[in-house]
Every structure is written in C-alpha cells, then in structure tokens.
Design a protein around this nucleic acid. Structure first.
Lengths: 187, 187
DNA sequence: GTCTATAATTTGATAGAC
DNA sequence: GTCTATCAAATTATAGAC
C-alpha cells in the first residue's frame, strides 16, 4: 500500500496520514502536530504545504473524490449489467471500510457539516451529487427519472449508513447484509 | 420547546445546548466555554455538573436514547400495522432532522467512533442495538429471523444515511424520498 | 451551585534562518 | 522545503472562596 514510505512525496504522506485520521475521528481529530509526527517533519513544515487547515481539508476531499470515481470508472469498464456495476460500487466502498478500517471521508464530513469550513462542505456536497449522478446513469432506462433519482439516493444513503453502522457496532458483516439487501431490492 | 428558559434546570439547559452543538458539529465541536456562554454560567460551573467531557457525552447519549424510545413507544401505542409503525419511526427521525435542524446524535457520534471516548461509543452502539431490536419486533412473523434482521439493519442504515445526506446536500426533501422508498420496499 | 483564579496542554498559525 | 522559535487563543480541568 504505502511504498515503504520512501518514494512518497511529503504531500502524499501528509494526505495519507490526514485522511486516515480524519476518516476515523472527523475533521477536528486531525491536528498539524499529529501530522507532523506521522510524517517526521515539524508542524511549521506542514503549514508550508497546507497553510490553513481548510486547505488541507479541501485537498483531502478533492483527492478522495477523484480517486473514488477513477476507481469506479476503471472497475466498471467491463461491467455490462446494472447488477455488475452495483456490485463494483458496493465492493469499492466495502474496501474503504474493511481495508482502511475507516468510513467514507465524505460521509463523516457530511455528518459534521455544520462544524467544518464551508469550502470543505461544498466539496462533500459535490461528492454526493456525483455519486447520485453515477447511480442514476446505471439504472434502467425503463424507470422514470423520479424513480431513478429516488433509487439512487436510497442506494447512496444506504451504503453510507451501512459504513457508519458497521463501525459503530464493530461488525463489518452488517455492511454486507445491508448493501446486499439494497442491491437485491434495486434489481 | 424551551419553556422560555426560566423553568429549566441548569443541567437541562446544559444538555440542550450541548446536544444542539454536538448534533451539528460532532463531539469536538462542543467546548465547556461555549456551553458556559450558552447557559450564562462560567465554564468551571459546567464542570461541577459534568466533571469530565465524557460524563457530558454519556449523559447526552443516555438522554437522547431514552427520549427516542419513549417517544417511539408513546406514538406507536395506537398503531396496529407494520406500515403505521414504520411511519411513526420515520416521522420521529424526520422531526429530529427538520425541527432541530441537525442529524441524529448517535449517527454523528457513531461516525466519529474512533475519536470519542469508549464509554460514549458504547452508548451509541447500544442505541443502534435497540433500534434494530425494535425494528425486528415490528416486522411480520412470516419473515425469517435472518430476513427480519437484514431488513431492520437496512431500514436503520437508510434512515441514518438519509439524515446525513439531507444535511450535506441542504435538502430535507431527499430524506423523505429515501425513507419513503425504504418503507415502500419493506412493506 | 456558582464564582474567581489559575494551570497544563493543545492547537492553528507566523517570522525568519538555513 | 524544512527548521527553530514563538505566539495567541482555545480547551480541559482543578482549587478554593462565597
């Protein structure tokens, strides 16, 4: 995963450390000093890369968003049916939960919405907008726009809620249970 | 709602102020000084009522949990069908979103799970356990235990995700869309 | 129960040398 | 790009008077 650390640029290391902390404890669970220790530099050097905390926050959301949709596009390249595409969607989010041992960055920041800088909250909103657009795009044409829209929102909310629940109850199986149920109902 | 403030005990005022702040920005968005200002006392007096922050956190989760299930029990007293009971469940959560202009306390704290004291996280887990138990209890007997369990988790995750999404996208209508869809699929 | 006073720590942030 | 040095503000918390 981390290329034994040495090849990585400082910003990469910083973003990785910050993402891990933020996806586990939220926006305020990340401090410049912690990141400095994580990356073996001083906190003033962290400020060189991200002058204000909201700069770091927006960079994190942007990278997270881009990576998510890039992965989604690559992994659905050879998927033909809606079910196949939904399974890819599910598996990417599942990896984020299980392998990173954390929830979705935007799910957590979205929940904290009133306590984070507006510019970061805007990035979060954009992430969810794009999620819904993608989900709508894979739903069958015979569904009405309004049906597709409500199905897409339900799938998104369900996956986000499933991550939160799995972490709260310390049971990743519940994520599979919920998302399998959602996909079954969508097909 | 607040009885023009004068009748309320200090702990009541403190819990109300803290709940409002925590349900909007998370655990770390609540400080003793803010609560002191909100209630017109000094921060040291807040510590008299809640010596440590985790004491406040557990009191908040306990009160929130108790109030939720008390309301649920009262409002489903005369409900006979599963659909009626689910509509009550939906409407209570909807009020929490719309009237309080905030998400579920436990939904937010659950997301922040790795960044809050264990004792608070345990209260959150308990809240969700009880949610699932209640939902399972209203589902039809003809469903298998495993079907009921997965349906209950899906309804819970969907309602929590719907609150988070509604706040992130600043659109409460999406909460209704999602939860109506979920209930339709459950019936 | 509330106050004043205070302490220890953390946090976001800046100035300036190398 | 990173460091030392530093800061002002915020935060959790305690001691003791009233």
């Amino acid at each position: 995963m981390d290329e034994s650390d040495s090849k990585m640029s400082t910003t990469e290391k910083l973003l990785n450390a910050a993402e891990h902390r933020m996806r586990r404890g939220g926006y305020n669970a990340v401090s410049f000093r912690d990141l400095a220790n994580d990356t073996n530099i001083k906190s003033s050097s962290v400020h060189y890369h991200y002058p204000k905390k909201e700069d770091l926050g927006t960079a994190l959301v942007d990278r997270y968003s881009k990576r998510f949709f890039d992965t989604l596009n690559v992994k659905t390249e050879n998927a033909t049916t809606m079910e196949q595409k939904l399974k890819v969607y599910q598996s990417i989010i599942r990896s984020a939960l299980v392998e990173d041992d954390a929830i979705c960055l935007c799910g957590l920041l979205g929940a904290e919405g009133a306590g984070i800088p507006d510019v970061v909250a805007n990035g979060v909103q954009n992430f969810f907008d794009e999620n819904i657009k993608w989900l709508v795009s894979i739903l069958p044409q015979e569904m009405s726009e309004s049906q597709k829209s409500s199905m897409a929102s339900t799938l998104l909310a369900g996956h986000q809620g499933a991550m939160m629940l799995a972490r709260s109850m310390q049971d990743n199986k519940i994520f599979d249970t919920i998302t399998n149920q959602l996909i079954k109902e969508a097909i």
